[in-house]
Design a binder for these strands. Sequence first.
DNA 1: TGGTACATGTAACATGTTACATGATTAG
DNA 2: CTAATCATGTAACATGTTACATGTACCA
Lengths: 182, 182
Amino acid sequence: MTEFKLNATAASLLGFLHDGPMTGWDLVTIAQERIGDFWSLSQSQVYRELSSMSVAGLIKAGERGPRDRRPFTITDVGRAAFAEWLNRETGEETIRFPLLLIVLFGQHVPKQRLAEVIIEHRERHARQLADYEKSLEDMVALEHIPTSQPDPYAMATLRFGVKYEQAVLDWFDELPEVIRGR
Amino acid sequence: MTEFKLNATAASLLGFLHDGPMTGWDLVTIAQERIGDFWSLSQSQVYRELSSMSVAGLIKAGERGPRDRRPFTITDVGRAAFAEWLNRETGEETIRFPLLLIVLFGQHVPKQRLAEVIIEHRERHARQLADYEKSLEDMVALEHIPTSQPDPYAMATLRFGVKYEQAVLDWFDELPEVIRGR
DNA sequence: TGGTACATGTAACATGTTACATGATTAG
DNA sequence: CTAATCATGTAACATGTTACATGTACCA
């Protein structure tokens, strides 16, 4: 068994492929929707990972369909690699927050500019929170429809988004006057 | 004026160089301390950025001292580039949180493993929160010593850390039983 | 005098970003 | 018929990670 060392991005693609064959396009779309908020990935990365996983036998390309659509199917090797990844991965999160750099170097930033940047970011986060809350409500609403039930795992990641955005907004609102101006 | 397009990492180094000449080693150390929690960077990156900024004339290498220490000084061009960066940069944060991937794919993760991973991460975050709170207390304590006063900008980034960790812990504690086990 | 921390740097590789090239299908 | 969307892929480059090679100065 030649161990193919999965990265988190490739692993996620395998995760999605557990639900059935998908094309690169499908995967880009679905990944951006379902993990894009806490694991960014781009279209070209997806195609790159697909081609290397295909070479390694973790997935198998099917016949090309209309518009050259090419569905990939996960193989047993792929399923094993995914399981192995789930079992091994324990990495910490990476946060890279340019705004905090601007704040840290605040003494070099014109007061006006600093205040504007803060306001702009605060608005972004308020919008993001609203989006998350909306999605969460929609999901919770599913509970009350007999045949459907929400995915508790997806719900947990959404709740993370809500908590995170709330914390960020809180932080904005408690910034001292020197920083947020006014 | 040939515009040298700074990235956030290089810009941060310039930011630190505003306080006086420093060597690569100094910069690695100081950067990890002061921005490492929200902007990771490695030793080899620092040397790489220094050498390209040196070529571009944003910084100037001084004489080698003991142990081959080579201090870099920011130039006027560098100061301008830094100011320009502060004025241009408005990027959003990137969060890459492997744990959330594991949670999202929870249906494929053995219950036991999922619960363990959650516990482990919760502990990490509890520790991190404690660290942040300690540093914050130390900083606040400075306020009561006549001659010294804490840097409000550094304090704000620390407060962000505290808020963030509190939110994460909160999230852990509200996870449903299906996910956190027990 | 020997280990640890200091200090510089490179090499090799993995990952991430941006832009482009090409074409098919569908909806208006 | 034509614009938008779907769909695949590559190229070029920027950034990030890990490991190694080399040597110095300090201090116990």
